[in-house]
Design a binder for these strands. Structure first.
Lengths: 217, 217, 217, 217
DNA sequence: TATGAATGAGACTTCATTCAT
DNA sequence: GATGAATGAAGTCTCATTCAT
């Protein structure tokens, strides 16, 4: 159903030879590091090319402009996220208690942010850089929301009045933001934040179960 | 972009004369609009000065550099937010049911985003622009988190094992992100998102009440 | 733009195979269109190759560099002009009244400019592109001037003190310039210009006839 | 009736201070030389700035882009030409024999080309560079044609069926082209060309006098 | 103090030409 | 021979900031 995973949109030329593909990855890796370290605007195409050991002309043969590098990075993240989600839920789909499920999901997300520090770091900036609508479509989370909405609607098809898309949106964005922000907090506070994120998620999901009646303070 | 060797945070000079204060506000208003419309980087100091009808030289008397305008904008938001929070809670501190309280808070936050569209729009971009730690300190939310943590710890001092700072952090960031993102969604989905944000908040806070026991899926 | 160290004038290889000749013509046709439409400098060799459906590598087998394409174009024009001139004068050499001869020549020239709009359009630009002397030699008109001087010196060998080369030069350049410039004028003014060009030519040639005595204003 | 002569269109800023005006002239002088020597395209803005001893940034403060320099140069030529024409005809308007008038005009034009070698050299190239219509309006000759048409229509108001605009166009363009091209010819041929240009002009003008009847060859 | 002309490093991108396959 | 990916010097123009007036 998905497009060929190795087809990065925004790329000028589809490298067919190993050397080209290698170069594209070099460029992407370097760009990722530099975007994180210096910011998108402060990173020059010349510097990316230099650090990637690729002539600037070649860089522009693969990517029509600087923004296309960002696009390609986004696509790469999307693929990685989708894979992780699929793998996790393939295992998780069995009947685990909700609290355990939440635990696992948050931990996995946390791990993802550690493995790919650029994920949020880069795409926060991008909001104000790309043309508005494009940016929204580009937002890497879109695929993840789709995945999660699909999972929830299958697993908990009995929830009433549930808009699975909205729920998935809320989960992805809230968890994503909180865990990402937690990364730059002091260790002790960071742990609290992770714990609170789990509680937030759990209580939110629980609220959808029939026996979860309204309570007052 | 020449670096400023004597980098002073905030404003260079506290204008004491009415005309100066007026000019500073002019500049801030114009900068806010332009940062939203064009992005921080694409907005030139010259353009700000021109639209604000202030000579570029004068602009640089009030603000040591471009970033200082952002700082000043952040400060202004912080003050506005603090005021709103205080006003709201001054009234709200009376014993409203939690669900009503949540309702009011979310609606007020929503209103704030409508009144000050620059709030999130601008500070999302800024992450990658400012030096990392500085950016975090600058984040306007800091004051709001402080306010809310303080409020919660007074109001619900009986919660056990509660880290009010973490709770406030989670609330501010989750609510802020979700409502802000909801702004750019289609009306119908937007309304769902707001409703879900209320549910998220409510169930999270409820989870702190003693009678809120664990339930399985 | 790397200079070509072994600069060969004209074409690198005389294509002997039909396919090659076809490709060369394709290239020339496309180059002609693009030079007119976009200008010589704005037209890239890659674009010419692409539109001509010829690999860029092959283009460079036929033409040592971009300028050689211009040269080849010039040569092609020269041949076409020479043919037309010959054909016209083969018929015209009979004893037509001078006014009729002028009429026919101007009309034919006009037709040529319509048929080959690149003729002047391209070679005006070239002045500033090619090295000075080369440019002059390249000027396509050279052959035409030779043809005309030869014709005049045979037909009007009785003219005294006549420098047929200079006369032909004057005729070719004046007529060429005026008719070419007339092309971009409004229709009504254009017609006046053509008529004036005829008058200019006729009165100039008439001035060489013995009975054409000096008159005062 | 004409706009302020010191107002060069295409300029970004009207220099009010002596130093600025000096710089603009510096830039224009240097650009003129380089456009002649290397061609418009081969001349870089950086090189102009360097040779004019003006920072590149300042150059761009006076001229929005490279083409504006050409425009300014055109305007400068137009003014100079207009002045010369006016001066010459102020004296010439007295009743000189036509042949003498022609002699004087051609000689003066020749002198102009010697004094301002860039006049034709530059604007020949420009045809294919500027946007079409703009180029035509820009062409420096426009003012000269206007001047001459005006002069002729006053002096020879008795000519019948005469379109003074077309006549002036023909004269300016034919004389201009021939004399300019003569510059790059060998001395002896050059002299013939100048003589022929005079003959061309004289016989053309004479053809407008009543007693100038049609003659056959 | 107020002004705005001056500065120049550096950003992004292009393109004629080559040469390994 | 035929191909087209690779190359990198060089081009135009921007803009935050300063400082002489």
């Amino acid at each position: 159903m998905r497009a060929n995973p190795s087809k990065l949109p925004g790329m000028r030329r589809q490298p067919r030879q190993a050397r080209s593909q290698e170069r594209v990855n070099q460029i992407l890796d370097v760009a990722e590091q530099m975007f994180i370290a210096e910011g998108y605007n402060a990173t020059t195409t010349k510097a990316i090319a230099a650090r990637a050991q690729v002539p600037i002309g070649s860089l522009y043969q693969f990517f029509p402009d600087k923004e296309a590098i960002l696009q390609a990075l986004a696509t790469r993240y999307t693929e990685q996220l989708h894979q992780r989600f699929t793998k996790l839920h393939a295992a998780e789909i069995t009947n685990l208690p909700l609290s355990t499920y939440v635990e696992r999901v948050i931990d996995a997300t946390n791990q993802f942010f550690t493995d790919y520090p650029g994920y949020h770091a880069i795409f926060m900036q991008v909001q104000g850089i790309m043309s508005e609508l494009e940016a929204i479509e580009t937002t890497v989370d879109v695929q993840l929301i789709r995945d999660w909405a699909s999972y929830l609607s299958q697993r908990y098809s009995n929830w009433e009045h549930a808009d699975y898309d909205a729920i998935a949106f809320v989960l992805v964005k809230a968890i994503g933001t909180l865990l990402w922000l937690s990364l730059s907090q002091e260790k002790s506070f960071r742990q609290h934040l992770v714990a609170e994120t789990k509680r937030l998620t759990l209580s939110y999901l629980q609220s959808y179960f029939p026996d979860s009646l309204t309570r007052s303070n």
